[in-house]
Design a protein around this nucleic acid. Structure first.
Ligand code: FES
Ligand code: FES
Lengths: 158, 158
DNA sequence: AAATACTTGACAGGATTAGTAGACTATTTT
DNA sequence: AAAATAGTCTACTAATCCTGTCAAGTATTT
C-alpha cells in the first residue's frame, strides 16, 4: 500500500545524479540514463516536467544537459515528488482537485489528513543535499563525468 | 501521490461501523452499506477478507452480521490496511515479495525505507478506539441500531 | 553546415482498481 | 420442514492509471 510510482522514484534518482556534480556543469540525459538504469525516452518526459516546474534548468547544444536551478540544500524531495505525482493525497477526499461532500462528520477524514501532513513534513524536510551526504557520495571522484573547461581534477573529498 | 485505494478506505470505515456498537451484537452488511454509502457487494468482498484475517467474526442467519474479534483498542488501522492492501511499500524495492538488486549503493533506498517505517508506526499506533473517541461518537444514541434482546434503551453517553 | 542535445506530443500495452453479479451455505424462526 | 435472513465464494468486466516508446522538431555550439 501507499506506493510511489516509478516516475517519482526515477525522478528523485535523476535529480540525485544532477545534484551529484551540480558545480561541474550540465549532465546529459544519456549519462543519467546509464548511471540509473532508466531509459532515455522516459527520462526526457520526467526531466521536462521538472524543468517546467523550475527545479532544474536545461542547456541546449553540445556540452549541454541539465543543471540544478538552486543548490541541493534548497531542493526538497517533496518538491520533486509534488511536481511529478501531484500533492500528497492519501484519499481523493483530500485532493484539492476533488474534495468530498462527506467531510463533515466523516470519522476517518482527520486521520488521513493527519497522516498526509506527517508525510509531507518528512518529504519537505529532506533535501537533495541530505541524499548526497547520506550515501558516501561525498567521497567519489567525479571520474566519467564530462567536464566543460577541461579541469579534470576531481573535486576530491576532504 | 501515495494514494490509498478505496478498498482500504472503505475497509476502515466499515470497521468503524462495526466498532461503533461492538457490545450491542452484530451489525449487518446492509446497515454498514447504508451508513457509509458503499455497495453491499463490494463490502462483502472487503469484510470477507477481514474475517479471514481474524479481525472480525461473522454470525450467520437472522440476527447475524459482523462483530469485532477483539476490542477496539486492540485493533489498529495499520492491521486493517495491511490485510486489505498489503504491507507498506513505498517502492517495489521495499516489498518483501519483490526486492531489488540495486539496494546496495542505492542512494534513495534508505530514504523510502525510513519514510515507510514512519508511516507504519503512525498507522499501528492508531486504533479503532481512537477513531471512536476522536469523532464525537461517544455521544450518539444507538438509535436505528438493531438490537438482539429487545433492550432498546440507548447506551447513552455520560 | 554538421553535430549534439534538449522539447514536445501522441500513443499503446499492461497492470491495477473498482465494482457487479449470481449461485451457494448456514442459521433461526414459524 | 419451510421460509426468511444473512454471510460466503468465485468470476467477470469496465475504467483508469502506469509505464514506457517513438518520432519529428527546435536550439546551440563548433
Ligand atoms: S469520505 Fe470523503 S472525507 Fe471521508
Ligand atoms: S532501485 Fe531498488 S533499492 Fe534503489
Amino acid at each position: 500500500m501507499l506506493k510511489l510510482s516509478t516516475k517519482g522514484q526515477y525522478g528523485v534518482r535523476a535529480m540525485f545524479e544532477i545534484a551529484r556534480g551540480y558545480n561541474l556543469g550540465p549532465i546529459t540525459i544519456k549519462q543519467i540514463s546509464e548511471n540509473q538504469d532508466v531509459s532515455v525516452s522516459y527520462l526526457e518526459q520526467i526531466l521536462n516536467q521538472l524543468r517546467k516546474a523550475g527545479i532544474i534548468k536545461s542547456v541546449k547544444g553540445p556540452g549541454g544537459g541539465y543543471v540544478l536551478a538552486r543548490s541541493p540544500e534548497e531542493i526538497s524531495i517533496g518538491a520533486i515528488l509534488r511536481e511529478l505525482e501531484g500533492p500528497v493525497a492519501i484519499t481523493s477526499c483530500l485532493d484539492p482537485k476533488e474534495g468530498c461532500m462527506r467531510v463533515e462528520g466523516c470519522v476517518t477524514h482527520l486521520l488521513w489528513k493527519s497522516l498526509g501532513e506527517k508525510i509531507e513534513t518528512f518529504l519537505d524536510n529532506m533535501t537533495l543535499d541530505d541524499l548526497l551526504k547520506g550515501s558516501g557520495f561525498v567521497e567519489i571522484t567525479r571520474a566519467g563525468r564530462r567536464n566543460k573547461k577541461g579541469n579534470d581534477k576531481a573535486v576530491a573529498a576532504g
